[in-house]
Nucleic acid binder design. Structure first.
Lengths: 230, 230
DNA sequence: TAGTGGTCTAGACCACTCA
DNA sequence: GAGTGGTCTAGACCACTAT
């Protein structure tokens, strides 16, 4: 027996009922078995559709409690975290890269806290400038766990730490934050903008299992924005 | 026959193979049927695990082409988009709200472009200030499609447009952007910060099917950051 | 304790796309 | 044309939790 009912079509029908008010905020919708019977498909198909909607924040599901329409749905947006070089290429510009410094040094207290390690520990510290069409694009300030395999041999003048880590040190857990900062004198000089300019910043911290991998601060040239569809 | 093999355990095993280099970047991994045999579970269980990893950017899958480990994985981060009031409450602060202006006016050209509508069209324009513990938290500047059902009767002095729309105008498609801006004189005065302060800004535009719903610019008080786990 | 979602299985057909 | 992932089905057991 062939079926033309896809989980996407069930999802679309559910969305229609949500938009029309058929399924009102705060109420409970029929259980999966009932919907499967009503819509003429298997329960697992209904399950897949409702699971996707729950992942998007449009439904709340609990065993025994059933599936409910939240009064105030919390929508989710997914951003891609590309390698900086790829990001620049995707904008149709030519990527460039300049290593500014590389040394072993004790973690600053704030960075140690981000990485959840006891403070006076040595990490590798790198700073680098990414260029787009020869113009400053992004300033990278990074601390790397010196125990990372292969780190000592890595040539960070040829490949950015960003790219090296993505290829050589898969992380399993991380935190990311977006914020705005005024350019200090040093940052302004490196990015070629007036001091005080509002800059977009990303802070990312990652671990492999429990071991810290890296903490990085990316400060972008003026006008940078990140976008996604929801 | 009962099984203790879950798709999560298959996902964990796949992650292990990726981390260990068993499955090297750029190579192809065994097909689902083979893995199912090797791991002693049904193909659909393998499918679920690999599908999740592909959604996270750790694998690339194509029919006939098989499943590959990307050379430079593009990881994904998911952010929640809460109602501003809930956001403030989640920070343990008391939310407040003040409507600053409400009028019908022609869309500015830039906003019309964002909404993908012909320019000289009237929308409802609202500005409002959100407070946390009586301090400025976020400035909301919003344009709403006047055709939205119930809009004329909505009392935006009592409920924020943010909240009203979430409850009354489900959108199906949207765009969101994060950026940094220097506070202009007006914004600085309203948020209680010096002009020029770097502020975090979110621009969100939404549609229901093809009809524009709203375009909103949220400018946050200094120090605001948004965070998520990856 | 009972109802509901979460998941697994085995088998099947199909859609895409690579060679 | 053929190999691989995408999905559906029917049935089953289980985990969680509301009542």
């Amino acid at each position: 027996m062939r079926s033309s009912i896809t989980w996407q079509s069930i999802e679309a029908e559910a969305l229609r009922r949500l938009q029309s008010g058929d399924w009102a905020p705060g109420t409970r919708i029929p259980d999966e078995a009932t919907l499967a019977r009503e819509l003429g498909c298997a329960r697992s198909t209904v399950n897949r559709a409702l699971r996707e909607l729950a992942a998007a924040g449009l439904l709340e599901r609990r065993r025994k409690g059933g599936t409910r329409v939240p009064l105030t749905p919390v929508r989710k947006a997914t951003f891609e975290i590309p390698i900086i070089r790829k990001d620049i290429e995707a904008r149709g510009q030519t990527p460039g890269y300049r290593l500014l410094s590389r040394r072993i040094a004790p973690l600053p207290r704030a960075t140690a806290r981000r990485l959840r390690v006891p403070a006076p520990r040595d990490f590798m510290h790198l700073t680098a400038l990414h260029l787009a069409d020869a113009h400053p694009f992004c300033l990278e300030d990074r601390w790397i766990n010196p125990a990372t395999p292969g780190l000592a041999e890595a040539d960070f003048t040829a490949i950015s730490a960003n790219e090296w880590l993505v290829r050589n040190a898969l992380f399993t857990r991380g935190e990311i934050a977006f914020l705005a900062v005024n350019a200090d004198a040093d940052t302004a000089a490196r990015l070629g903008c007036p001091p005080g300019t509002a800059l977009f910043r990303i802070e990312r911290t990652t671990w492999a299992t429990l071991a810290p991998v890296t903490a990085v601060t990316l400060t972008y040239a003026p006008g940078h924005r990140i976008e996604t569809a929801i």
